[in-house]
Simulated scan of single mutants.
Amino acid sequence: MITGASSGIGAEIAREYARRGVPLILTARREDRLAQLADELRARVPIEIISADLADPTAPARLCDEIERRRLPVRILVNNAGYGVPGRYRSKDWKTHADFLQVMLGATSELTWRLLPSICAHGQGRIINVASFAALVPAADGQTLYAPAKAYLVKFSEALSLENADRGVHVTALCPGFTWSEFHDVTGTRAMMSKLPKWMWLHADAVARAGIDAAERGQVVVVPGAFYKTMYCLIRHLPDSWALKLMGRNSGKIRKVD
């Protein structure tokens, strides 16, 4: 099952799994986009679509009830649904932040909890949590909750990996950097982000393959792309105060901070 499967990395993960012959359950808010993707992939594998808005706290339970009603065994879970909230913390009302936290943390945690017995029952289960390179470096000014939420996914993945390794379950946190997708269109930062050099950008299909390959070999944290691997190594060796100051000087280039 892939959440947030209607576009971007989620859709490319669906396409990659379909190429590998894995039947799919696709979920997202936009049922029309899910239907289009299902029509594209149905010639390769069986596809089920279930629309759900994970900002609704009741959605994870209802989604899992529907999966059970259709008798769909889940061996692989991809927690991909997510977005960013542009601007500084007090520039948005609390409902906006609460919905964000529900999608990024609440829904991911609950879906994993509810589906884990099915995933473990297969003996070769996989969980991919789509985090971000932002989880691994000092937080930037703007989109205040984004990096903390993604850092949670990394630690969540590490803990789940240790807990379930003896059951044959591989858990992976996928941590891509800037990736060509609708993400920056939704946050209204496309014009700003387009000023960044093209070599800083990853393609969503390559990110999808990196995540799936990492899960298959049991790698817990994967950073796609040579540039981001190098940056991660460099930042890990900088004093925290230096790294934070460096991010502070450059936040305006990568975040909308008004």
Rank of each mutant, 00 (worst) to 15 (best):
L136F: 14
R29Q: 12
A206I: 09
A204Q: 07
T58W: 03
I25E: 00
W199H: 13
A14M: 07
G218H: 07
P57E: 03
M193K: 15
V171P: 01
V186S: 06
A159Y: 11
T58H: 10
M104E: 15
L160H: 06
D240M: 08
W199I: 13
A139Y: 02
L162H: 14
P197C: 06
M1G: 01
I2F: 05
M231K: 04
E182D: 15
N79Q: 11
Q143R: 03
A226K: 13
L202G: 01
P239G: 04
A121Y: 08
G218W: 08
L63C: 02
R114H: 03
R19D: 15
C64T: 10
F178Q: 01
R114Y: 01
E66L: 05
P57I: 03
S157R: 03
C120F: 02
L24C: 05
K195M: 12
E40V: 10
R249P: 07
A173R: 02
L162V: 14
L101F: 06
R20Y: 06
D258F: 07
A243P: 11
F100V: 12
S109K: 03
D205P: 05
A147W: 03
P73N: 13
P46N: 03
I119N: 00
L162C: 14
D141T: 13
G10T: 08
I25W: 01
I50S: 00
A173C: 13
G188K: 10
E48M: 04
A214W: 04
P73W: 02
H237C: 12
R62D: 09
G8M: 08
T172R: 04
M192I: 12
D258V: 11
A139C: 12
S91E: 15
E158G: 03
F100W: 08
P239W: 04
I49E: 04
V207C: 07
A215H: 02
R217P: 04
F227N: 02
L34P: 01
E68H: 04
S109C: 12
A131R: 06
M200C: 13
R62V: 03
I49L: 09
A52R: 00
D240N: 11
A139R: 08
A5I: 10
I128E: 01
A139V: 15
T179N: 07
K229N: 14
F183I: 15
A55R: 06
G225K: 01
R114P: 00
P86M: 02
